[in-house]
Simulated assay, not measured.
Amino acid sequence: MRLLPLCFALLISTPAFAQCGGSFSSFVQSLKTEAVANGHSKAATDRFFKGVRQDPKVLNADRAQGVFQKPFIEFSRRLISQNRIDRGRSMAKKYDAIFDKIETQYGISRGVLLAFWAFETDYGSFQGDFNTRNALVTLAHDCRRPNLFRPQIFAALTLYEQGNFDPDRTTGAWAGEIGMVQMLPKDILENGTDGDGDGKVTLKSSAPDALLSGGRMLSHLGWQAGQPWLQEVTLPQTFDWSATGIATKRSVSEWAALGVKPRQGSLADARLPASVIVPQGHKGPAFIAYPNFDVYFEWNQSFVYVLTAAYFANRLEGAKIYNAGKPDAGLSGAQMKQLQRKLQARGHDVGKIDGILGAGTRAAVQAEQARLGLPADAWPTAALLNKL
Rank of each mutant, 00 (worst) to 15 (best):
S251L: 08
S251D: 11
V252Q: 04
S253F: 02
S253R: 11
S253C: 00
E254A: 15
E254N: 14
E254P: 04
A256K: 12
A256P: 03
A257L: 07
A257N: 11
L258A: 14
V260C: 04
K261H: 09
P262I: 06
P262N: 01
R263Y: 06
R263A: 13
R263L: 13
Q264K: 14
Q264Y: 11
G265M: 10
L267F: 05
A268I: 02
D269C: 05
D269N: 14
A270H: 05
R271N: 13
R271E: 12
L272H: 07
L272A: 09
L272N: 04
A274E: 02
S275T: 05
S275F: 07
S275Y: 04
S275C: 07
I277C: 06
V278S: 12
V278I: 14
V278M: 11
V278E: 00
V278A: 15
P279S: 13
Q280M: 15
Q280P: 04
G281I: 13
H282M: 15
K283E: 10
K283S: 12
K283C: 07
K283L: 15
G284K: 10
G284W: 09
G284N: 11
G284F: 11
G284T: 13
P285D: 12
P285V: 12
P285C: 14
P285N: 12
A286Q: 07
A286K: 09
F287R: 05
F287S: 09
I288A: 04
I288G: 00
A289S: 09
A289P: 03
A289V: 04
Y290K: 01
Y290Q: 03
Y290A: 01
P291V: 08
P291H: 08
F293E: 10
F293R: 10
D294G: 12
D294Y: 10
D294S: 15
D294W: 08
V295K: 00
Y296P: 01
Y296R: 02
F297A: 00
F297R: 00
E298C: 00
W299G: 01
Q301R: 14
S302Y: 05
S302D: 08
F303M: 09
V304A: 02
V304N: 03
V304Y: 05
Y305T: 00
Y305H: 11
Y305C: 00
L307D: 09
L307G: 06
T308Q: 05
A309V: 11
A310T: 07
A310G: 09
Y311G: 06
Y311S: 12
Y311H: 14
F312R: 04
N314D: 15
N314R: 15
R315D: 02
L316S: 10
G318T: 14
